[in-house]
Structures are given as C-alpha cells and as structure tokens.
Design a protein around this nucleic acid. Structure first.
Length: 417
RNA sequence: CGGGGCGUGGUGUAACGGCUAACAUGCUUGCUUUGGGAGCAAGUGAUUCCCGGUUCGAAUCCGGGCGCCCCGACCA
C-alpha cells in the first residue's frame, strides 16, 4: 500500500476527549475513529490489525477442535425467557429494540441460549459429544459508563466459544486445552510475558472463573500475582480460604493493575437443563449436557497491546498483529533516481509476498520517521541517497536495536529471519 | 446511576460582559530546504454544542437540554 494513497493521515494532537493512551495513539495514527462514547470504527490500518488478531484467535480455536459459526445479532426473547434471563432485572446491560408494536428483540450481548438451542437440534447421543463451537461477532452491551478508549465499549467484536461435554472430567480437560490455546493467543499477540491466568469470581455458575489478565497500569482490575507460579487471583476473591485452596501465600503475591483480555466460565447445566439439551448415555439414561464458555474481546486485546507495548514515540506492534510487515520509507527530496529505486524495492518486496506500507510521500525525513514511529510497523526499510551510496537499504526495528545497511541481494533473507 | 470537570475553525488552545473571536497545527499556492515533525510569504477555514433568558451589548452571566472525559457504583 502506498501511503500517499491511504485515506487516513496521522495527526500531531490527540483529541482532548480521549485520555486513554490506546485511544490517543490509535486515533493519532489513524487506526480508529470515535463515533461516540464507547463506539469506535476501524479504519484501514486498524482493521488490518483487528483482522490479524482475529486470524490468530481463529487458528487457535480451530486447532483445539472448535467449529466456527456466525449467529445472529437479533435475538429471540423466547429462549431467554426460558432460562430466566430476558428481564432487565437479571441482565441489565442489554440493548433491546422493537420489531413492531409490543414485540421486543434483543441485540446480541452473549449467545448461550441461541447456541444451546441450535445444538439441541442436532445432538442427543453421548456419541455427539464433546463439541466446541465458536464465533467472532459483534456484541452490544449497555455499559453505564464506557471508558478507557477501546478497552470498554458498548459495541465490540468478541470471540465467544461454548463447549458441550458429558462429564466434569471432560469439562476440565477441555477447559485446560482452551487455557493453553488462550496462552498461545496472547503470546502470539505479543503480550504473553505479561499475561497471567487469574482466578476470579465464578458468578452464579461455579466457584471460580478463569481470567487472563495482562499487567498494565491502565487496567481496571486489581490482581494479586504469584510470579513464580505464573498465576494470580482477582481482588474479588482475594480472601484467605481461596488463597489456601489455590496454595498461594500472601507473601508471594504482588498487587498489580491489569486488563482482562480473556475469560473462561464453567456453566454447568445452567442453560442445557432449561433448554432441554440432553444426551442419552451408554446405558440409555438421559443426562443434561455440561457447558463452558470462553470469551476474548478483539478490540480490547488490540487496546491492551497498545497500552502495554507503546513508547513515547508511538505504537510498537508485535509482528503477528502489525498492519503491515514492513514500512518502506523513501527519503528522496524529489530526486527521481531515489524514487525509482524505492519504487523498484516496493515492487520487489510486494512480489515476494511481503506486506509493505510504502511511504512514498514527498515529505522531509523527520516527518516521515515520526509518522513511522507513531504507526509502529515492526520493521522499517529506508531508501535514501545515503543508503544507495552505501550499496543497499537501511533495515531497522521499531522496537530499537541495530540499524544496518542491507544490500538488495540479502534483503529477502534478512527480512524473513 | 451518584460526584467532579469540560464543550470555541478539521485538531490543540486563547479571549475582563464591549473593536472584525486570537494563536498554533492542518489544508492550498509559491519560493527555499531535504536523515528526525525546517524556513519565508500569501491564502483557506467558526452559526463559539442546542434552546431559552438577563443586558444597549453574551463565547463570556443565568436556566434547561444534549454531548464528552474522569472518580465511584456496576460489569458473563
């Protein structure tokens, strides 16, 4: 992509209605646009990042046997009434809309009920389980207070997976499998080192839920982390008997702020029973299916990456989520030979299958470098009079470290390693 | 939903109740410059969030509304 053709531009000033670092940087760099409080549009660069995050999550969910679906955003009140969750007194953050006089529909905030009904149409034997089904879909939640940029919005894209199994042992086994998949997702998203499995309140479903918390001063949650064991407890369950049960000592725990980037709930038979999702076991007995659910907010994960990894100059994208693999920057000063050389390199890299953002704009070096730092593509390649004289192009990393002149003959090899 | 703060060109800011609403940035044009947001010049761009009130006169004061941010509560 030629940067001169990109319809977005960077800006020097962050809008004053944003305080959160993630929103300030993403808006300044042209990744997102705020429509209103808690609702952000994704612009070309931001949408590429989000799609990369989506790809990572999808790959890992498929790898543990997840089957992908896409359910509707409009939701039928009937099944929610069956489980007793339609009332605003039970779920108070639900956007609802009217179909016609007296007929109300829900806008998706979660999908346990509709998916349970779908599964019940197809599965009824012990041979049909276990199964795990997921989707990546827009959710709406009427947050009383949207905040922290894209970390807590009223409309957001979420991956929600639901597991359907026959026994507590199977539930536990799948739970563990998903935990490992989640840890791989966060590692690939570049925040593995600061993300920890955290025990939290299980709500009405079970004793604990499992959260994935990324250490970050901007986080909403307070957790108590045992670094050596790499597990933490959320402050909501930071009490003696929980610590004892988990084998944690208060003296080993550090208090930290963190962002909840993922969570896992054991649902038991809370939904399968009222909705009649049962299976016949080997002996012919009818049993309710045991469920679990597994969520990751894509936008929140993107925000957590920005919060965690950016520096004073701008965003620093990890390789797998970066909008482009490489930022090619020409410093030509109108010199046609340098422009031609940069154009040629752009074509060469593109033909080699490398995703390149090519800053072909006729601007001074300082401005181009400042923009490149702000946008945060991990690898930079500069072509200028100086680099041509030195026999190549200058390769550097956004995160710092060595800058070196690489001759064209070695370029593809160097980029790929 | 309780508390606090704030709404002024695209963006960031300024302006005692009183002159044509100022400055920076952006954008346009020209000259100059070309490895870290250069310089000069000329332009462009505002119903000062909305409605009402006070006043000879309102961006400014008052009332109401709407919006945005922060703290708290809430948060599958």
């Amino acid at each position: 992509m030629r940067q001169s053709q990109l319809f977005t531009k960077t800006r020097k000033h962050a809008p004053k209605d944003e305080v959160a670092k993630n929103a300030q940087l993403l808006i300044r760099a042209g990744f997102i646009h705020k429509e209103m409080a808690g609702a952000y549009s994704y612009l070309p660069l931001g949408w590429r990042v989000l799609k990369n995050i989506e790809r990572i999550i999808r790959e890992e969910m498929l790898a543990i046997g997840g089957q992908e679906v896409l359910m509707t955003t409009l939701q039928d009140p009937e099944i929610w009434k069956t489980t007793g969750r339609w009332s605003d007194d039970v779920v108070d953050n639900w956007f609802k809309t009217e179909l016609s006089e007296g007929v109300t529909l829900g806008l998706a905030h979660s999908h346990e009920e509709p998916l349970t009904r779908i599964v019940a149409q197809y599965a009824s034997s012990y041979r049909d389980f276990p199964k795990a089904i997921f989707q990546i879909q827009n959710k709406f939640r009427r947050e009383l207070r949207a905040k922290s940029g894209i970390l807590r919005g009223r409309e957001f894209i979420m991956k929600d997976m639901y597991s359907f199994v026959r026994s507590e042992e199977e539930l536990q086994a799948f739970h563990e499998k998903c935990t490992q998949a989640y840890l791989r997702i966060f590692a690939r998203a570049g925040i593995g080192a600061q993300t920890f499995v955290t025990f939290a309140s299980g709500g009405s479903f079970s004793k604990y839920s499992e959260e994935f918390q990324t250490l970050c001063g901007a986080g909403e949650d307070t957790i108590y982390l045992d670094r050596a064991r790499k597990i933490a407890v959320n402050e909501e369950v930071y009490v003696d008997d929980v610590l004892q049960e988990l084998g944690l000592q208060k003296k080993d725990l550090e208090e930290e702020k963190a962002i909840e980037v993922g969570n896992i709930f054991k649902l038991g038979t809370r939904f399968s029973e009222p909705l009649g999702l049962t299976f016949t076991d080997e002996s012919g007995a009818q049993k309710p299916v045991i469920m679990g659910c597994y969520g990751i907010g894509l936008g929140r994960l993107m925000g957590a990456i920005v919060e965690t990894l950016s520096d004073e100059k701008g965003i620093v994208w990890p390789k797998e989520v970066a909008p482009y693999e490489m930022h090619l920057v020409s410093i030509a000063g109108g010199n046609a030979d340098i422009i031609a050389e940069a154009d040629r390199l752009y074509d060469l890299l593109s033909e080699s299958g490398i995703e390149v953002l090519y800053d072909d704009r006729d601007l001074r070096a300082g401005e181009k470098f400042a923009d490149a730092d702000l946008i945060g593509i991990p690898t930079r390649l500069v072509v200028s009079e100086k680099t041509i004289a030195a026999g190549g192009a200058e390769l550097s990393a956004r995160s710092g470290g060595r800058i070196s002149i690489v001759p064209e003959s070695e370029l593809l090899e160097r980029i790929r390693c």
